[in-house]
């Protein structure tokens, strides 16, 4: 395992010749960390991978949203960002008449959507047209820290595969830290437990081994 350094806000990163990336800032010619996290230097950019933090929507993110408000031609959905995002009816696979949005999605319904547009004020638009997008039926949604999403997915999806094959549950991981789990009661329960371990210990090394161990123990129990 390569050397991993924890940095804290205000800590100098001694990387003057690099470009300041996410989680850093430049002041009087030096680069400092702006969040607590793990230092990552990949020329020419130095960044800090945060331990925690808010979900910042990015173009193309697939996220799990909850419908909040029905409009005449759109819905307002909660994607875990500070503001609700509009989902226009043209962004759905259905043919909808003006004013009839409520017959397709009701407040409280969960949907998988993709972030389409993000402007400077972090106002976002979402769409439901695309592979793997659509309404969610059954299962549960678990919320973890958005910064731990890469650990839940694992290298090219290895962690998801591990969880799905050993529990039999089906999962969809949103970039906003919401995870939809569907399957039998016991498999959902196991995945939830595993997600809580990842949320708590995701920054430590040897995570996959610990999850494997946890799954084996819960199988034999």
């Amino acid at each position: 395992m390569k050397e991993r350094t924890i940095v804290l806000p205000g800590e100098e990163l001694n990387a003057g010749e690099f470009q300041p990336g996410p989680g850093t800032y430049r002041a009087d010619g030096r680069i400092y960390a702006s969040v607590a996290g793990i230092l990552s230097i990949r020329a020419p950019i130095v960044r800090v991978i945060p331990f925690s933090g808010p979900y910042i929507p990015q173009h193309g993110d697939v996220v799990i949203a909850v419908v909040k408000i029905i409009g005449p031609t759109y819905w307002l959905v909660d994607v875990g960002a500070p503001h609700y995002a509009p989902l226009h009816y043209s962004g759905t696979p259905w043919k909808i008449e003006y004013g009839e949005c409520g017959e397709y999605l009701r407040p409280g319904d969960a949907i998988v959507v993709r972030i389409e547009a993000v402007d400077q004020n972090q106002r976002i638009g979402v769409t439901m047209n695309g592979d793997g997008l659509g309404r969610i039926n059954g299962g549960i949604i678990e919320q973890i820290s958005p910064t731990k999403v890469p650990r839940v997915i694992g290298k090219s999806g290895s962690m998801i595969r591990l969880l799905e094959t050993s529990t039999g549950a089906r999962m969809t991981v949103g970039q906003n830290g919401r995870v939809w789990i569907d399957g039998s009661q016991s498999s959902i329960y196991q995945v939830r437990q595993a997600l809580q371990i990842i949320d708590r210990e995701g920054q430590r090394s040897g995570l996959t081994d610990r999850i494997k161990l946890f799954l084996e123990q819960s199988h034999s129990a």
Binding site: P9, S34, G53, T147
Partner: peptide, 11 residues
């Protein structure tokens, strides 16, 4: 604030 992961210049 640092625990929340909100970007800040220093503690």
């Amino acid at each position: 604030l640092a625990d929340a992961g909100i970007p800040m210049s220093d503690l």
